[in-house]
């Protein structure tokens, strides 16, 4: 995405401490960089807080912070992550995402052109997700005290009618669906960060999931819970559900969609695709009688074209996630401990 530096900003091709000091440089950055990209009526007022119209239903509210190195990677950037991450957290709670705030912590010396490209990508991601960025803030830290650009976003949405999602609703026999190939984001970031080259470029799956969630929730009754398996991968998301529901989950490893290039990269690095981060996938736990219909709705949606049934809930081992392996034996699936893929999102 091209970005051309507007005239008033050209005296300062890089971020300086003054851009976060609240004076004229701050105002110019807001007026000429953020506002043209994010333009919407609530933001336009440039007051300290945005006044939003009444939403007509229970509010859903979420926040997330985004640090990623490198800032741009195949298939995305910290900008798309910052929008889609919060949009997806709202969507997984059953909400229609509506408004975001964005706070930037910039490192002194960050090229303005880099910030411009990040902001342009955020604006595009916001348009795609149907949300407005209605308020924001910028701070600058001294060189060496940040990693270029950190972004924190907070989002509000309104709960879809008739939706009640809760892990407590998961029952033995329920079916676990996964919306597509797992591990793409983590391996995309890892491959550029570590300078690993594979025959095929692995791209991040970073995308908004609110319309896929809406498709699944067309028949909301049988849907127990939705989760987007980001950091910690599918394993962490399944663990959360198992622990919160106190029901066992059993995943069939051979049913799990993993791209050959991601599998190969994981083999090479000794990683388990179940532990690798995703930024555009969800898992749904659905009542057994509604599973096939939910799968069909997912597959009709572009973000769920490769969806698959990957496992079942069971009363055999409450709170524990187990994997059925390629040789039809069983092992326990644990969460990763500490750092495996440091700072992916």
């Amino acid at each position: 995405m091209e970005w051309t530096c507007p005239l008033p900003l050209r005296d300062y091709p890089t971020i300086v401490m003054g851009h976060g000091a609240g004076g004229q440089l701050s105002a110019e950055l807001t007026e000429h960089l953020f506002l043209p990209a994010f333009r919407n009526p609530a933001l336009e007022a440039l007051t300290d807080a945005a006044v939003l119209p009444s939403l007509g239903g229970p509010l859903v509210f979420s926040t997330d912070a985004f640090v990623v190195r490198p800032l741009f990677f195949p298939g995305g950037s910290v900008g798309e992550l910052a929008v889609n991450g919060t949009v997806n957290d709202l969507a997984m709670a059953g909400a229609i995402p509506l408004h975001l705030s964005a706070a930037f912590i910039l490192e002194e010396g960050l090229p303005l052109e880099t910030l411009g490209r990040i902001v342009a990508r955020m604006a595009e991601a916001a348009r795609r997700a149907g949300v407005h960025i209605v308020t924001g803030d910028t701070k600058v830290v001294e060189r060496g005290h940040g990693d270029g650009c950190f972004i924190a976003t907070t989002g509000v949405g309104v709960l879809r009618k008739g939706v009640e999602l809760s892990p407590a609703a998961v029952r033995p026999g329920d079916v676990i669906l996964c919306s597509g190939y797992v591990g793409d984001h983590g391996m995309a970031v890892m491959s550029v960060r570590e300078g690993l080259e594979f025959e095929t470029l692995i791209e991040s799956d970073c995308q908004p999931l609110h319309t896929l969630a809406a498709a699944i929730l067309e028949d909301p009754g049988p849907v127990r819970v939705l989760r987007d398996p980001t950091r910690g991968g599918l394993a962490s998301a399944l663990h959360e559900i198992a622990r919160q529901s106190n029901v066992g989950l059993r995943v069939d490893e051979t049913a799990l969609p993993v791209r050959p290039e991601v599998r190969a990269a994981c083999e090479l690095l000794g990683l388990d695709p179940l532990h690798v981060a995703n930024e555009g996938k969800l898992i749904a736990v659905v009542a057994p009688e509604a599973a096939e219909a939910a799968l069909a709705r997912m597959r009709r949606h572009p973000a769920g074209a490769d969806a698959a049934i990957i496992g079942l809930a069971t009363d055999a081992h409450p709170g524990v996630v187990a994997v059925r392996t390629a040789v039809s034996a069983t092992r326990v699936l644990n969460m990763i401990f500490g750092e495996q893929l440091p700072r992916i999102c």
Binding site: R243, H317, G319, V320, A322, T330, R331, V332, N334
Partner: peptide, 17 residues
């Protein structure tokens, strides 16, 4: 054994979280 422990030890594995 900890990561892939069979179900004999699954209870203690889950409890330690």
């Amino acid at each position: 054994y900890y990561h892939y422990g069979h179900f004999v030890s699954a209870g203690s594995v889950a409890a330690s979280h």
